[in-house]
């Protein structure tokens, strides 16, 4: 029985795309530069990246499949007008400040299908848009584009605004921040971006893993080992108990010496 590339669920019925339904045509597709073994190595490195991940995750069998996922890549100039409160030695502990930031945003990606969520695509990082291929790939599965240019434009604008606002907040150490924006020269191109999608089973859960087909960056929500957490809690409790005991003993000893 075939399984879904994106979530690993068994596919019982394949539903054909209704004829005549409009799907925007991508400008091109970006070829993979990370091969399957490098993607697998990236997953192994990810599995070992935190002591809280279960040890058997490193040995988990994950089949990573290559998929071309449609995404709108937006670029443009943003004028961010901001005002907020910064910490200060005043009665209220705050003081109002305002400013303007003009910056150019490149490759702000917005998913054009339900295969990837916005947070996943953002976390996957950048793709090299240098050489999009025009000839349709025969051996690569791809998702159809569902979102139009105009539908993703406002998403891209708010992503740019959020990125710039985050920078302003961090730079000025603002407590609160309000913004208004103007975007100029906003251009979007629809591309199929290379992503490895893997599904691995941990306990009774199917977990999804994504690998950027250009950088090898891994995105996924790995499970936390309950045993490791329990052991850590016990270890901390034992340390605290030991410290209390030592302090108690020192107190009794001190009292005896004083007598």
């Amino acid at each position: 029985m075939p399984s879904c590339l994106f979530c690993g669920a068994a596919v019982e019925h394949l539903v054909p795309v209704p004829p005549g339904e409009e799907h925007p045509e991508p400008e091109g597709w970006l070829p993979f530069s990370v091969d399957a073994s490098a993607a697998d190595a990236a997953f192994r490195a990810f599995a070992s990246s935190s002591i809280w991940y279960p040890s058997d995750l490193r040995k988990a069998r994950v089949t990573l499949r290559r998929v071309l996922v449609p995404a709108w890549s937006w670029r443009g100039e943003l004028e961010l007008y901001w005002a907020g409160l910064e910490s200060a030695f005043t009665r209220s502990g705050k003081r109002p400040v305002a400013g303007t930031l003009r910056e150019r945003h490149e490759q702000v990606l917005v998913p054009a299908s339900s295969a990837l969520r916005q947070a996943e695509l953002t976390a996957l990082g950048v793709f090299d848009e240098g050489a999009p291929q025009r000839e349709w790939p025969d051996d690569l599965p791809y998702e159809l584009c569902e979102a139009s240019e105009s539908a993703t434009q406002s998403v891209a604008q708010s992503l740019m605004e959020r990125l710039s606002a985050h920078r302003v907040r961090k730079k000025h150490g603002l407590v609160t921040l309000n913004t208004s924006v103007i975007t100029n020269d906003l251009r979007g191109r629809l591309l199929l971006v290379p992503v490895y999608i893997g599904v691995f089973q941990y306990g009774d859960r199917d977990l999804r893993l994504l690998v950027n087909g250009h950088t090898g960056g891994v995105v996924g929500k790995a499970p936390i080992s309950a045993w490791k957490v329990a052991f850590a809690v016990l270890a901390v409790a034992a340390l605290l108990a030991g410290a209390a005991l030592a302090l108690g003993c020192a107190g009794v000893g001190g009292a005896l010496v004083a007598r």
Partner: peptide, 11 residues
């Protein structure tokens, strides 16, 4: 407490 503030806005 009151503070003066000046700035720009665009939309």
């Amino acid at each position: 407490e009151w503070f003066p503030l000046s700035g720009e806005h665009g939309r």
